[in-house]
Design a protein around this nucleic acid. Sequence first.
DNA 1: GTGCTAAATGCTTATGATTCCCATTTGCAT
DNA 2: ATGCAAATGGGAATCATAAGCATTTAGCAC
Lengths: 142, 142
Amino acid sequence: MERDSGKIVWPEGLKKTKPREVVLSILEQSKEPLTAMEISSKIEKTGKSVWLSTIYRVLESFEEKAIVQKTTVLDNGMAVYAINRHEHTHYAVCMKCRKMVAIENCPMQAFMPELEGQGFQVTGHKVEMYGFCKECSVQKKE
Amino acid sequence: MERDSGKIVWPEGLKKTKPREVVLSILEQSKEPLTAMEISSKIEKTGKSVWLSTIYRVLESFEEKAIVQKTTVLDNGMAVYAINRHEHTHYAVCMKCRKMVAIENCPMQAFMPELEGQGFQVTGHKVEMYGFCKECSVQKKE
DNA sequence: GTGCTAAATGCTTATGATTCCCATTTGCAT
DNA sequence: ATGCAAATGGGAATCATAAGCATTTAGCAC
């Protein structure tokens, strides 16, 4: 059950290097957005080694080319990165286990007209819900 | 044209100290959410002096008592704080001048049923739009 | 394949927001 | 007024992220 028919197209102007390929493959395999450090430890597990500063640089270049999306999670302010699947996904974040659950649709378009009426030109948006996921919400009741 | 009929009620369990009163008054007077450092420099201008570490502590205690709301802005990951006016406000952030424009309504309720159907218990959410405010959007065209 | 050059990486060190620590001070209940 | 828990000043520590620089590598022309 492939989630995406087409592979990510390597963007123009970016050399195809080992660090970049490794980071991309980690992100492609992950269902959830990852922090730079999570990416780093996943790389370590494969026996390879890429320095953190390189990971940050790689992620930055990927973000510029719009093949990954950067988001900052609220309570700790850390940045997470996910492959841009052009599916316009938002997440619900569990306050206990930090799991991120994807939200399917996006009603944000409803906001645009109001803002653009005020002269604000909208170029992007971000939505995050938080609370407790199914598992943690059960635990809480015990 | 008072925005709120009732003053903020001082929360139980918090001593009424000078730093806390100053920070609260700054936040009450501000239409926009402020960073800790912005609060600090506004305090300096009044001739008073409160240390940054104290401001952070004050803000943390206010957040726990739910009289201020903390939000992390996307592109730089800095935290901003605003009085909780219980009006459920979201903001549009200008990418150029950093101004934050309030968004009036919130269509987020539309999301809740979907998530709660999946067993996710929603306790809060955050919405942020980015783009260019009226002034900056004009400048861009020049 | 060889050589070239700009771009990318390894590795280290800096930065900048936020937090922690602890001795001293202050609010407030009795 | 007294006592004590809570709060603050002052500074140093933390932690994610960025910057610096010498070395290596990808990708191109030949």
